[in-house]
Amino acid sequence: MPGTVLVGWLATAVAGVASDVAFERMGDAASFVLIVYGILITFVQVWITREAFEQVGVTPALPVVNSLSVYLQGLLIGLGVVLGLVLFILPGFYVFARWYLASALLVRDGGGRRAAMRQSWDMLAAHWPAALGVGLILGVLSVAPLVVGEVAPALVAEYGFGWLLATNLVAAAGIVGGYLAAVSLLLNIEQPAPALQEIFG
C-alpha cells in the first residue's frame, strides 16, 4: 500500500504541474484543462480507494474504468457545497462533512451516485465533526501553497518551476491524504479500529 500511495501522490502532483502549465498557455481553453485535470485525478482517487479497501479484504464494486461516475458525483457534491457556502458559510461546511464518504462508498458498493451520497449523509449524522475536521485539515494542505503563492508572488517569480513543483507536491499530499482519510473514517465507523492498521501498516 505505501508504494501505491507514493505513485498516486506523484501522479497527482505531475497532473497538477501539467495542468498549471497548460492553464497558463491555453488562455480561452483553460476551463477544459481544469476538467481534464479533475478527471485524471479522479482515476487516481478510484485506484487508491480501491487499493485501500482491498488492503482490508474488501472487494470494491466500482472498477477504475468507471471513474467518471465518481467525477460526476464530485461535481454534484461540489455544487451542493457551493450552494451551502453562498447561502450561508456554515451549511456549506456541514454539507461537505455529511457527504465526505460518498466517493468511498460509491467505489466500494457501486450502488449509484445518489445512493452513495444518501448513505454518507446517514452514516455521518453523528460523525460529521470528525469528517469536517479531517477534510478541512487536508483541504488546507491542498490549497495552502496556492494561497502562499497569491500572498507572496515574489516566491513564484524567484523560484519558477521549482515553486510550481513544490506546491503541487504539497497539494497532492493533501488530495491523496483525503482519499485515504475517507476510507479510514468509513472503516472506523463500520469496523473495529485495528482494521485501519492494515491500510497504513
Rank of each mutant, 00 (worst) to 15 (best):
M123R: 05
G177M: 08
M26G: 03
A171G: 15
V86Q: 06
W47I: 03
V21M: 02
L141P: 02
I199L: 13
M26H: 08
I41L: 14
L68E: 07
L6T: 10
R118Q: 12
I77N: 09
S67C: 06
A115I: 14
L85W: 09
A116H: 07
P91K: 08
L79E: 13
V7A: 14
F96S: 09
A18L: 15
Q55H: 13
Q45N: 13
T12E: 01
R108K: 15
L196Y: 01
T59R: 14
S142H: 11
L185N: 05
I89M: 13
P2L: 10
V44G: 00
V134A: 14
G38I: 00
I189Y: 02
V183K: 06
R98G: 02
L165D: 02
V21R: 11
G74V: 11
G38V: 01
P145N: 13
E158S: 10
F93I: 06
G162H: 05
A152Q: 13
T167C: 04
V156W: 02
A131C: 07
F23P: 00
L164F: 03
L83G: 10
L6N: 04
M117G: 14
V151H: 10
L124T: 09
S184G: 12
A182R: 11
I137N: 05
V156F: 03
W163I: 08
E24C: 00
G78N: 05
S19N: 02
L34E: 15
G78S: 08
V17Y: 08
F32S: 10
G133Y: 00
T49E: 04
L155R: 09
L34F: 08
G160I: 09
A166W: 10
V56I: 12
G92I: 10
V170M: 11
G27I: 08
V44I: 14
L186C: 03
V183C: 12
I35P: 00
Q55K: 09
D20N: 15
Y37P: 00
W163M: 05
A13H: 04
G74F: 12
F88Y: 11
L185K: 04
L155H: 02
L146F: 15
Q197H: 01
A125V: 10
L155P: 00
S120P: 04
L185C: 06
T167Y: 04
E24Q: 15
L155E: 01
V151A: 12
V65S: 15
G162E: 03
V151W: 13
Q191S: 07
G135K: 08
G149Y: 00
E198F: 05
L186T: 03
Y37W: 08
